[in-house]
Each structure stands twice: as structure tokens, then as C-alpha cells.
């Protein structure tokens, strides 16, 4: 029962937050200098044309009226129309979203494939050569801009082998898959150092726990201890690191999609900003914030279900 109360409370807290988010996104239009109508119809439009656009969008209404109309629009799934293509922002996003989901999903998996073995090997013999090398490399990796890593991968893998395209997303599923490998690897390399660090620390902590000593004294083998006790207990902190860094991952997607010319929402927001396409920027910004709120919400709920200790404490 307690758990449902916790989830209900957590959901209730998210609602005022969403209103704050919508307010901030609404302000992007209000605060940006210049006449939005001018951005739509162009520099040569007559005053009459401008006024027509202003009337259509209700730009002359008081700000508070516009804010409530914006909330209404958002709630009914209308994010406005692109200043550039006149397409609905929701359909632009829907078109671009799958690419980003592929990138994030594939990137997260690859990052685990890199960081879990490294963390286990480091934690088995802390402060030995391998551990030091991993930590040293992590320090360097954290200082590397992800777009630069992407370019290095293009230079050292894509160009010499020809296995992967230098950019773009291709047309067929096979091409999609080939196009996503290097961007996903770039994303994985940018998040892996953070994961190795936290996973290594939690493995060392669990290895020192009394139940592991007990298991060992009962003759349980090393591999079994790792899989049965250590990884199971060290995994939740790693997952929450991934969740906590969702903002970092999303910005990583923005930069990496631009590097590899992947038509995802990350590249979308950059193009929108370059073209001064305000409704699209608003749409993307709102989407990114909602993703973050949802991920935090889900992470909290999963933790409360997965870790019964929290319930005991509350």
C-alpha cells in the first residue's frame, strides 16, 4: 500500500512541474526579440500580410491569454506549425523520433557492453595496473568532445573499411543498422566512463559485504558470487546513473546526430535553431523536458519496486 502511495505522490508532484515546463517553453516565443509574424512571411511581406498572420496566431492577445491557449494546444497535442515548412511540429517530431530512440537504445546497450566488463575487471583487483589504466583512460575519455570522437571514428573506421557510412540514415533497415553503429558507439564511449566509475565503486562495496564473505566461506565459486550476488546488487546504481544522466545522453544525441547527419530530433532542434523556427524549437524543448521528467518518474517507481529496503525505511 505504501508503495502505491509513494507512486501516487510522485505522480502528483509531476503535474505542477509540467505546468512550469510549459510556461518556460511558452516564454521562448514571447521573449525572443523580433516579430514572429515577420519570421513566417519573410522580409518583403506587406503590413497587411503581417497583420493577417498576427491575427491567425493571436499574437496581439494579452500574454496570459496566449499562455492559456498554448496550454490548451499542448494538452490537445497541437504544438503549432513550423515557420519554415508549415508542417505540424508533432508530425515532424514523430518522423524524427524513431531515429533518436534507435540511437539512444543501441548506445545504452553498447555502453553497458563496454563498461560492465571493464568495471568487473577493475574491481577484482582495485589499485592494480588494470584498474589504474581504466581510470586513466576514463579521465581522458571524459575530456573528449563526443563530436570529435565521432569524427575520429569516421576517420579510423568508416573511411578505411567502408563498412559504415560517414553520415546519413540510409533507406532500408540494413542501411539504418549500418548507419547507427558508429553514432551509437560514440554515444556509448561518452557515457561509459561515468558508468565504469559508479559500477566499479558499487562492486567493490558489495564484494566487501558480509553476505559475500559468508558465501565465500561456504565455498561458493567466484563466478557464481559475481553473477548471483555482486552484479545483482551493483546493477540498480548503474541503471540509476543512466537515468540521472538522461539529460547528458539527450544532449549527446543532439551533438552526435549532427556529427553523423542522422535525421533524429537532436539534429531537428539544431536545424530549427539555425533557421529561427520558433514553434519547432518549442516543440523539441518541450519533448526533451517531458522525456527527462518521465525517465526520472519511471526510475523512481522502478527503484521503489525493485528495492524493498526503501519501503522498510519509509
Amino acid at each position: 500500500m505504501n508503495r502505491y502511495l509513494f507512486i501516487a505522490k510522485r505522480l502528483a508532484l509531476a503535474i505542477p512541474l509540467l505546468f512550469g515546463i510549459v510556461l518556460l517553453v511558452f516564454l521562448i516565443l514571447k521573449v525572443t526579440p523580433g516579430d514572429p509574424a515577420r519570421l513566417i512571411v519573410g522580409l518583403r511581406a506587406s503590413e497587411a500580410e503581417l497583420q493577417l498572420v498576427r491575427d491567425q496566431l493571436g499574437l496581439d492577445d494579452p500574454a496570459i491569454v496566449q499562455y492559456f491557449r498554448y496550454i490548451g494546444d499542448v494538452l490537445t497535442g497541437n504544438l503549432g506549425y513550423s515557420f519554415k515548412s508549415n508542417e505540424a511540429v508533432t508530425s515532424i517530431i514523430a518522423e524524427r523520433l524513431p531515429v533518436t530512440i534507435w540511437l539512444l537504445g543501441f548506445g545504452a546497450l553498447l555502453s553497458l557492453a563496454i563498461s560492465v566488463p571493464l568495471a568487473i575487471t577493475s574491481a577484482r583487483r582495485p589499485d592494480r595496473a588494470f584498474d589504474h589504466a581504466t581510470r586513466g583512460f576514463g579521465l581522458v575519455a571524459l575530456a573528449m568532445p563526443s563530436f570529435w570522437v565521432g569524427i575520429i571514428l569516421i576517420l579510423t573506421i568508416a573511411l578505411p573499411t567502408g563498412w559504415f557510412p560517414v553520415g546519413g540514415f540510409g533507406e532500408t533497415p540494413t542501411e539504418h543498422l549500418r548507419s547507427i553503429v558508429l553514432p551509437a558507439l560514440t554515444l556509448a564511449l561518452s557515457i561509459a566512463p561515468l558508468q565504469v566509475r559508479s559500477l566499479r565503486a558499487s562492486i567493490i562495496a558489495v564484494l566487501g559485504a558480509e553476505y559475500v564473505t559468508t558465501a565465500r566461506s561456504l565455498g561458493v565459486g567466484h563466478g557464481r558470487i559475481m553473477s548471483k550476488f555482486v552484479l545483482r546488487n551493483a546493477a540498480p546504481p548503474t541503471v540509476s546513473i543512466l537515468a540521472l544522466n538522461i539529460g547528458y545522453l539527450l544532449f549527446g544525441a543532439v551533438v552526435i546526430e549532427t556529427t553523423f547527419a542522422l535525421p533524429g530530433i537532436g539534429q531537428g532542434i539544431v536545424l530549427a535553431a539555425r533557421q529561427r523556427d520558433i514553434p519547432s524549437i518549442q516543440g523539441y524543448t518541450l519533448l526533451f523536458a517531458i522525456v527527462v521528467v518521465l525517465v526520472f518518474l519511471i526510475a523512481d517507481i522502478i527503484t521503489s519496486i525493485a528495492d524493498p529496503r526503501l519501503e522498510v525505511e519509509s
Binding site: 512550469g20 532542434i269 524543448t285 521528467v293
Partner: peptide, 11 residues
């Protein structure tokens, strides 16, 4: 904090 930091910085 609900926004990814750099997305908000872009905006």
C-alpha cells in the same frame, strides 16, 4: 532541472 541542461542553453 527538468530540462536537459544544454537543450535549455540552446533555447
Amino acid at each position: 532541472q527538468a530540462f536537459p541542461t544544454y537543450i535549455l542553453i540552446i533555447a
